[in-house]
Nucleic acid binder design. Structure first.
Lengths: 226, 226
DNA sequence: GCCACAATTGCCCTAAAGGGCAAGATCGAC
DNA sequence: GTCGATCTTGCCCTTTAGGGCAATTGTGGC
């Protein structure tokens, strides 16, 4: 629910428009070619997306590290591979550390090595200039869809991870064994506690995880513990 | 169990040696460059792998369609992209229909488009000549590992799919609901049968699937049904 | 020492699952 | 029509899960 305790912000009409665009998709373009930046910016703006352009990877990283608040919505990166200072693949390496925004690489000259490297490192696609508008829009739409799903997954994972963190070591041990199909009695023998205690931990753990049935529990345990 | 009802075969000592090589890995090389074929054949044979070479994609497909029996073991394809008659990407498309052997593409000229296409179509890697021996061996080893795992997965899936096929429609309906956490009584109300019958179907289905616990059942149902 | 609090356990009861046994119902085959 | 196989159900019993309640134990703080 949008009940975040931030200080109230001044919202202008342009902010509202930007928020709407961000909700549709925010596209970050990084290229040392100014013409590309303006052309892409124009195209994506025309398509109703929010578009930010950066003339170099360091410039982009600088803004990124500011951690300025963003309107919610899916996001993707569109980055040229061959740039002075820092090339696209190097940027990709740096981002791979903690960032998981879909990255689309763009290349002027057709270097196959770069394409292989980039795609192996997780780039969603590798486009070669000249780029057809339709293909570009399709790829961007796919990237935004990936990020949208990725954001949902991350939120879900973060939520469950937080819940799992509240579990006792005992509760975790019980859950693991419950998810392996052991009965309460078997678990009690296994970790040398009373069966009643097993029941108690099991109940508490399920409450903490917010699940009511064994199948749900199994899915969560399978996804997070082992 | 190796109790297949095939006619007994004559096993020569060379067959035994080939079987041992196949167990280590079978590498199929497709290239129109005869030098590459001999060089790769020599290299892989030296490394203890079984290696078959084909001078064109159609030649390979012809042999493939013979469905001749093979010694068990992991397998991978090493295929040049630029060849007369049929290029590597076209072969990849044809194989993608039903084949799932890991494919490594090789390119002489460095065409980025081809690399992107090939990798997107599922090629495990895209090597560019000249190829370093160490890198080649590493990629091949990875491909063989992938196929080994893939074969295990396929066997497991085939096994379970066969078991699932023996289930009644009723049994499947019950299992689905069991895996969603419904109680026997709820299921009985849901599909309008007696609770005792639900128990019966549930029991039979678990016997047919060869599982003894609810968690195992949940995992199988999650993987196959919905 | 005393107290609050969390961890642990025993006792006991209900609900649900697992399953044996036999009977009714259905349906195609002879 | 009758027979056999299969599907379905009711009855009944045991095991397991779920959970309330109170007692015990250990621990840190006052």
């Amino acid at each position: 629910m949008p009940d975040n305790p931030r200080p109230r912000q001044i919202v202008t009409t342009s902010d509202q428009a930007l928020a709407a665009r961000c909700a549709r998709g925010r596209i970050l373009v990084i290229d040392d070619d100014a013409e590309i930046l303006t052309a892409f910016g124009f195209l994506f703006t025309l398509e109703g997306y929010a578009c930010e352009t950066y003339s170099s990877a360091p410039a982009f990283l600088a803004v990124l590290h500011e951690n300025r608040p963003q309107f919610p919505g899916p996001c993707c990166l569109l980055c040229d591979v061959s740039m002075p200072e820092m090339d696209g693949l190097e940027l990709q390496r740096q981002l791979a550390q903690d960032e998981n925004t879909p990255l689309i690489l763009i290349s002027g000259s057709s270097g196959a090595e770069e394409a292989v490297t980039g795609l192996h490192a997780g780039a969603l696609d590798f486009l070669i200039k000249p780029i057809e508008t339709e293909a570009l829009l399709a790829v961007v739409a796919r990237a935004l869809a990936v990020d949208r799903q990725g954001q949902l997954d991350r939120m879900r994972r973060a939520n469950l991870t937080a819940r799992l963190a509240t579990l006792t070591e005992r509760e975790r041990a019980v859950l693991r064994r419950v998810a392996q199909g052991q009965t309460n009695y078997e678990i009690s023998q296994d970790i040398a506690i009373a069966e009643r205690t097993v029941k108690l931990y099991r109940q508490r753990a399920m409450e903490k995880l917010g699940v009511a049935t064994l199948p749900e529990l199994v899915r969560i345990v399978d996804e997070f513990i082992y």
